[in-house]
């Protein structure tokens, strides 16, 4: 991985990506030749109908899955050639992930969850974490456990966890999909503001046109292809 290079303007580069799921009911092609480029500091919204391949594309960029065909490079790592350890290293050091289901570690309190990925990457900074907690409005909740938080609070913790290590790329999979409209808007605004403040690139998948409009760029997927 070569994420440390400041000269690398293009953070993620996908060319002709294909992905097919093999199910008991037969083969389901999800992505059919997708091209996408994400530049440093840029925010990109991926929209599309359910089943159009949005989340699959995000997972491929995050190294959570591997494409069947095409070229995919993220932060200098060729993800078609990378093994499990190399992909894990990329996720740990270069990517902040935000999930629709929050995916916090239920047995750790807010403070531990917030610093978890930064510590994993060896980039934990207590002062930065404290500032982040304050910015996210979590200062009073640091001793609580995820089950003691509302959905909006949990998603703010998840955003904090993704950003605490200052990763060059943040991926968010329907980050407001589990929240009501008002909470979702607030969380989205906060997320975008913090991402921009840190100079990270953001790729988010969303059904929300309002959220997509807040991003620098919007790409639309239809039946596995960019529309």
């Amino acid at each position: 991985m070569n994420d440390a290079s400041p000269a690398l303007a293009e953070i993620a580069h996908a060319r002709g990506i294909h992905k097919t799921y093999h199910t008991p009911g037969g083969e389901v092609p999800v992505l059919r030749g997708v091209d996408l480029s994400v530049r440093r500091g840029e925010s990109v919204a991926i929209t599309g109908e359910s089943g159009s391949g949005k989340s699959t594309l995000l997972h491929l960029i995050g190294g959570l899955d591997a494409p069947d065909d095409g070229a995919l490079s993220v932060l200098g790592t060729d993800l078609r050639a990378a093994d499990d350890t190399a992909r894990a290293t990329l996720r740990r050091n270069g990517i902040g992930m935000i999930f629709q289901q929050f995916n916090l570690i239920p047995s750790l309190d807010v403070r531990a969850n917030l610093g978890f990925q930064a510590r994993l990457a060896g980039r934990f900074d207590a002062a930065r974490a404290e500032t982040l907690a304050r910015d996210l409005g979590l200062s009073a909740l640091l001793g609580r456990y995820p089950e003691q938080l509302s959905g909006g609070q949990q998603q703010r913790v998840a955003i904090g966890r993704a950003l605490a290590g200052n990763p060059p790329l943040v991926l968010a999979d329907e980050p407001t999909g589990n929240l009501d409209e008002a909470t979702g808007d607030a969380v989205a605004q906060l997320m975008l503001a913090l991402v921009r403040q840190r100079g990270s690139a953001l790729v988010l998948v969303t059904h929300s046109a309002r959220l997509a409009d807040l991003c620098d760029r919007r790409v639309h997927l239809r039946a596995g292809r960019l529309a």
């Binding site: 995050g62 959570l64 499990d84 350890t85 894990a88 290293t89 990329l90 996720r91 740990r92 050091n93 990517i95 992930m97 999930f99 995916n103 916090l104 570690i105 239920p106 047995s107 978890f116 990925q117 994993l120 990457a121 966890r161």
Partner: peptide, 16 residues
């Protein structure tokens, strides 16, 4: 199960 998936999503290799 969820925690294990999260750990791996956050960059902990399967072997570890």
């Amino acid at each position: 199960g969820g925690v294990l998936r999260t750990l791996r999503a956050l960059g902990v290799p399967r072997a570890e």
